[in-house]
């Protein structure tokens, strides 16, 4: 699936996860799904977790992963993350998917070895 300029149509998957959950998930995404176009950063979240553990107005530490995937891979990756990060369970975060206007292909050379 490509757009009129020949770029792949893409989706942005955003995972808001509890602190410490991002790196193991990113490792699995790379090893099992071959995803390399992703990044993560720290954040703080106010919601169910903060309220139930500390009362109203408290934040908990989160990790946010942004993953750019081609549209034909998006459903599969979304489902993989849902079960791998156990998103459907309490206090395990939030998973979002949105359409991207454009996406540049991002592939690594095949011969590139793991460090």
């Amino acid at each position: 699936m490509t757009d009129e300029n020949g770029f792949p149509r893409g989706m942005l998957i955003t995972c808001i996860l509890p602190k410490g959950a991002a790196i193991p998930l990113m490792k699995k995404l790379r090893e099992e799904k071959g995803i390399t176009a992703m990044s993560f950063h720290h954040a703080r979240g106010a919601g169910r977790s903060g309220r139930s553990r500390h009362g109203l107005g408290h934040y908990v530490e989160n990790h946010i992963i942004n993953i750019a995937v081609s549209a034909d891979q998006a459903e599969d990756v979304f489902e993989f993350i849902y079960f791998e990060a156990r998103i459907g369970e309490d206090h395990n975060g939030l998973l979002l998917m949105e359409k991207l206007g454009m996406l540049t292909p991002y592939t690594l050379p095949e011969e590139l070895k793991d460090e």
Partner: peptide, 11 residues
Amino acid sequence: VSRLEKAATYI
């Protein structure tokens, strides 16, 4: 505001 295709969380 961006429209999301879908979202998932604990329900």
